[in-house]
């Protein structure tokens, strides 16, 4: 005995869910690809944190 009769709506809803799922996967892929390209190109994305990093200090600054 089946709990629910398979309805046309369920098919459509399933198609929609699959579509949204695929879009999310694509989105993850895009952000990943973007990250890989930006990082490997050496775009400046390093911020100052709590570690003293003399190489990031402006030239000529001495302590």
């Amino acid at each position: 005995m089946s709990f629910q009769v398979e309805h046309e709506i369920h098919k459509r809803r399933f198609g929609r869910n699959v579509g949204v799922g695929l879009l999310l996967v694509v989105m993850v892929g895009i952000v990943f690809a973007l990250t890989v390209v930006k990082v490997t190109r050496g775009d400046p994305m390093k911020g100052f944190d709590h570690v003293v990093e003399p190489e990031l200090a402006p030239a000529g600054a001495t302590e």
Binding site: H7, E8, I9, R12, R13, G15, R16, V18, G19
Partner: peptide, 19 residues
């Protein structure tokens, strides 16, 4: 369930409708 008007009343859009 092939009647288009029935589908319309359900308010359930397929993925293609959003596209």
């Amino acid at each position: 369930m092939s009647d288009i008007s029935v589908q319309v009343q359900t308010g359930e859009a397929g993925f293609g409708d959003y596209v």
